[in-house]
Structures are given as C-alpha cells and as structure tokens.
C-alpha cells in the first residue's frame, strides 16, 4: 500500500508530494493520502480528477481526510 502522510502540511506541499509520488506508481496502483488542510482536501482530489484518476475522499476524524487515488492512466 502506498501511503503519504501529509498531516500538518500546508499547501502546496501535499499536492507537490502527490504529484511526485504518483509518477512512480504503476497503472492500477492506489495511493492513500492523509491530510488535515482544508485546502489540500479540495485541491488534491480536484487535480487527480482532472488527470482522469479515480478519487475517493473520506473524513476519518474531525478535520482529517483520507484521499485515495487510483492511477488509471
């Protein structure tokens, strides 16, 4: 399981890390990202959707989200 812990990180770091990490993934692999930044919680899924990836976002605790991106290229 590929995981990125971006708790406590401000924009634009989460998306920068996601962009870098996803380059290294194979088609069909999943990436889980944990964020607690309300901006990242919107712009990471937005970016992934625009790339055409499958995105799931779940609030796991108050103000904490787990975003799952499946690389579908």
């Amino acid at each position: 399981m590929n995981k990125l812990d971006c708790i406590g990180e401000p924009c634009p770091l989460p998306l920068m890390k996601v962009e870098k990490k996803i380059e290294q993934l194979e088609k069909g692999e999943e990436l889980k990202i944990e964020v607690d930044h309300t901006c990242a919680m919107t712009n990471v899924p937005e970016w992934a959707r625009k790339r055409g990836y499958k995105v799931k976002s779940e609030e796991v605790s108050f103000g904490e989200w787990e975003i799952t991106i499946t690389k579908t290229d």
Binding site: G8, E9, D36, F62, G63
Partner: peptide, 18 residues
Amino acid sequence: AILLAGQFKWKKLKNKKQ
C-alpha cells in the same frame, strides 16, 4: 464556518523547519 461544518481540528506545528 469550520465549526458549523464539524471540521475543526487544532492543527499543531509539525517541526522546527515549519
């Protein structure tokens, strides 16, 4: 706004660099 959304979290500093 964030309390009414139920998404408030006290977000601590991560490290010295930050």
